[in-house]
Amino acid sequence: MRTRTTSLRRKEEIAGYLFILPWIIGFAVFTAGPIAFSFFLSFHEWNIFNKMKWIGLKNYARLFSDPLFYQSLKVTLEYTVIAVPLSLITGLALALLLYPKVKGTSVFRTIFYTPSVLPMVATATLWIWIYNPQYGILNYLLSKIGIKGPDWLYSTEWVVPAIAFMGVWTVGPNMIIYLAGLEDVPQVYWDAAKVDGANWWQRFRYVTLPLLSPTTFFLLVTNTIGALQAFTQAYVMGGGGQGFGAPANASLFYCLYLYQQGWSWFNMGYASAMSWILTLIIFTLTMVIFRTSRSWVFYERG
């Protein structure tokens, strides 16, 4: 009896592995392989054509004396600091608005989710128009309330915030995840709070928010990683489409500079070193968020 179950188990195991084999091969060849290769490359000088030349840590040393590296880091961090809280707050606000089961909520949910389905390039092109200082609708609306809008994408001060504000447009996934989080909150908690005399704000602040903290935690981590890797928006929108990092490198996002090093100038080693530094930054930030999470993330325990 025993041997038969073992052999059945073994058979099932083999079958299981066979079933996931295509994925394992794909992962090894197209993901793990290139990752390992890029690590290897980061210690070399290589322009695709010439023989790779081992240069040790020189790529990293060059990186730390490259003003554009710091510029791109600054731009990306500024973007992250604006974009992440903004899209979390907007996502939560929309979820709270669309949570009550009133007639037509599903229509609104769809409407708010729709922009997230559009390709980023299309969205970015659209927003170039919205942001046009002379003819764009944003400055037109601002002028109606007596504010003279800035030059947005053509200004070194506003180009990054402008690109970050656009992120609100694609907040759909955050909204959906918050909605799912809200569905998990048992109605009784709110009812109990209500009975205890808590007002709307108190119920939100002391019941909803803590119960949503695991969701917030998850979104904070994924959105931060996404923001640090932002590329398409910057590629399309910089200086209103005037070129890489325009104006004057004010929109030179980290991944944009990485791409330029790799694919415009074929400094593959340098670009690889840059990507490993980014990996390190992402890893560190994620660890920091995880560490702090103990003090503000609450899990329901039975």
């Binding site: 170039i128 046009n132 200082p133 002379q134 003819y135 764009g136 030059d151 994408l153 053509y154 200086g239 209103g240 489409g241 005037q242």
Partner: peptide, 8 residues
């Protein structure tokens, strides 16, 4: 014209 005027 400024870049934004040209773009528009």
């Amino acid at each position: 014209p400024s870049p934004s005027v040209r773009e528009a």
